[in-house]
Amino acid sequence: MKQVMFLNGPNANLYGLDRSGTYGSDSFPQIEAACLARAAELGFALDFRQSNHEGVLIDWIQEARQSCAGLLINAAGLTYTSIPILDALLSFDGPIIECHMSNIWKREPFRHHSFISKAATGVVAGLGLRGYLLGLAAMGELIDEPAQ
């Protein structure tokens, strides 16, 4: 069974607790459970992780190089600042899907530029949990495509 990693960056563990509703009402454990169930339906194993630390995310991306067919990432606030995460992603050979719970282009101007996008095969943003599930569905197709 193919393995896929889904990484979540700083403060993603607080989803569902944000009074503004920017990230929806689903809690992080609910999001994780829904993603694990969807991956199982799609026929691949999902390693779903979250860290508030840039270096840990980089270590996990490097780990994924050895064991994963694909990678999904919501680098959260590090999306707009982290060249080291970009560099780590550029070393990953499989498909990468950048996911955001909110529509980053409807938010503050500093969020309109993603360093992560340069490494991403595709981007899903602004659809909350639905976007995560769509990202997983796309990943399921991408990892099943024959190598070119």
Rank of each mutant, 00 (worst) to 15 (best):
S102Y: 00
A40N: 14
C35E: 03
I85S: 09
L89S: 11
E54Y: 08
T121W: 08
I83L: 13
D93M: 13
W105C: 01
S67Q: 14
S82K: 13
G128D: 03
W60D: 11
A75F: 03
F48T: 04
S25E: 08
R107L: 05
Q66W: 11
P10Y: 05
M5H: 04
E108T: 03
G24P: 04
Q3P: 00
A33Q: 15
G16I: 07
A34K: 07
R111E: 03
M5Y: 08
P95L: 12
H53S: 10
E98L: 13
I104S: 01
A147V: 14
D26H: 13
A64C: 04
S51D: 14
G24Y: 02
Q30Y: 03
G140A: 03
N11V: 07
I116G: 09
L71Q: 12
F28Q: 02
L7H: 10
L78K: 11
P84S: 05
R65E: 13
V4Y: 08
G9W: 01
R130Q: 10
P146F: 01
T79V: 10
S25C: 09
L72E: 08
S27K: 03
L57C: 07
N52Y: 05
G122M: 13
D47V: 10
L72K: 07
G131L: 04
D87Q: 07
D93P: 09
F48H: 12
